[in-house]
Nucleic acid binder design. Structure first.
Lengths: 186, 186, 186, 186
DNA sequence: CATGAATGAGCGTTCATTCAT
DNA sequence: AATGAATGAACGCTCATTCAT
């Protein structure tokens, strides 16, 4: 369905840029070169568009998680590798991430998506840490709690990269910081 | 001025809870038990209320920064101490922080406040790190870049604590994680 | 577009009767049996309605000027003929003229329209006088200044006819007064 | 009463400049350096201020009429003399005249004032014409109707002088135009 | 006399949504 | 499927007026 996807893509970039509230159906219709009524042929409501975008992200992130976990070769450097892949995924889905991050505090569906994303993130980190611990790359520690800390850092980093993209990229510092901490254990 | 403060306080909790857009002047007036017109006797616009809240926070945070930097006793444990004080300050000003964090991506005045807060945070962290390096508590490293990393962690942590307050408090883990990384240098 | 014209016509009569400020969008919508929102589907703002009315008048008056100047047969009595046609035009567009006359002192767009109308009036009168002078109907004199005087009289007359329509029609006296003055020259 | 007069004078210049509607009590109080409440110590309503201004003008114009009629020396040139005195009176009371002229179409009290002013003007002109006819300065004609014509010209002239004050003063042309017409009779 | 905070009805305008075509 | 005119509730805001002090 070409029209539905055009609506979705344009909505995604508009909401990412201006926010959900500031994106009006009139504007969206005009940019998509359709009538306002047509939006409602494809979506039940404006919020339904948002939910579709969020669900798409959730699905993609789930796929990404599964795929990357299956590909993990345990080796020194695994942590840096994984963090970089996470950042690459976010970069590819920038708009969707901006949408979740800017609206989870304001809209219930976004909050649910955010919960889902964070859960996957933490779970993924925990799996990673357990593998690393089993193979002795890092010392034994609580995978759950350390995963939480890593997720915290990742979340902060996402916000800063997404909303201050022109700032210098210090991802290497973040990765090194985490590597040092992990090697010591907590 | 009692009324002005009542408006301000009620607005603060409403905006923190529902967001700026969802907080209407009618609702605000009704909760404050005043008429809508009265709001405009004390503030030029709805946005002016937001700006006042944000400026108050900025001022308080500036005061806090100055005060805490002057009180710093360099000693092992200084980093944990400082991180805890930061978290305490945020806890005391929860509502204002929720407002900035939920709206900086959507509203220009909030973005400016956010910039100001982040700048102060980073500067403060850099000062702290330099002191710690001078006295040999942590090894020499780039204060600026490491401060950036600490700020990143703090930002992520704030979001999680403010929006998922019912989750288990893992601040000790965060502090320990940072301590370990800093002791190694990056 | 039927609705747009209905809005326009009803607005014209309401503004002519009560003035621009006293004509509210709620009233207008109610009289036009549409919702207030519909007004804004057809006009950008309340002022846009006014501007449309004023521009319509300006266009009509420009057409009228061109047409009447092309039809002028120079003959004794030409002045009376022309003044009568002017009055007839005003009578046909009473509402629009009332709108300009009642609001040019208060609203910028009306002032601009008024300037345009007066310019055309004076220019038209000057052309007429020049023709009359060339054919010896009236003695030589400054066409510009005399046109200004005629326009002055016309303006005063319009106000009185438009706002005191129940007063006796003394247009014949005005025409005769002007004719006498013109025949003598100034 | 000093305060009352200050309110009155400031209101007069504000209403003349911006119109009655655009002049708010808040603005007025601020310019007069009093509180809004004080306005209502001296006037029953905003409209009451307008009415006071209009009545003042009416009174002054009545005085002026009486005085000038008693001073009339019948002589050739009497018409020019009188027209000039009228214009001088208007110039002295510019603001009040601008108020009446800009609002008589919109506000009932202004319409009443306008009626009163026009009545006096016409009556005055008629008296003048009768005197001029009796002494043979101008030929016999209907004083009432010719007075109406003169008033028409005066009204048009007032509007143009008051609202386009920067335009060239062509009052001499107007006076000469009228003189020529009157000398011929109608 | 004067204040100024408070009022509340009403304003112009927006916008997600509906529905006849 | 698509249109686009119409809706109507709700919004932020204004302002003449009141009243306790």
């Amino acid at each position: 369905m070409k029209t539905k996807d055009r609506i979705l893509n344009i909505a995604k970039s508009m909401i990412a840029e201006q926010g959900f509230h500031a994106t009006t159906t009139a504007q969206l219709a005009s940019k998509a070169q359709i009538s306002e009524g047509t939006i409602y042929r494809h979506f039940q409501s404006k919020e339904d568009i948002l939910i579709t975008i969020l669900n798409d992200l959730d699905e993609k992130y789930a796929d990404f998680s599964v795929q990357i976990q299956s590909q993990l070769h345990v080796e020194p450097g695994i942590i840096a590798t994984v963090l970089k892949k996470q950042l690459a995924f976010v970069a590819k889905n920038q708009e969707s991430f901006k949408i979740v991050l800017s609206s989870f505090a304001l809209l219930q569906p976004s909050m649910e998506s955010m919960n889902s994303v964070l859960d996957r993130m933490q779970e993924f980190m925990a799996t990673l840490l357990e593998k690393a611990m089993q193979t002795g790359i890092i010392p034994k520690q609580s995978a759950q709690r350390t995963a939480m800390v890593l997720m915290t850092m990742l979340l902060g980093f996402l916000e800063l990269r997404l909303y201050w993209p022109e700032d210098e990229d210090y991802s290497a510092d973040v990765v090194e910081f985490c590597r040092q901490a992990l090697l010591q254990g907590t």
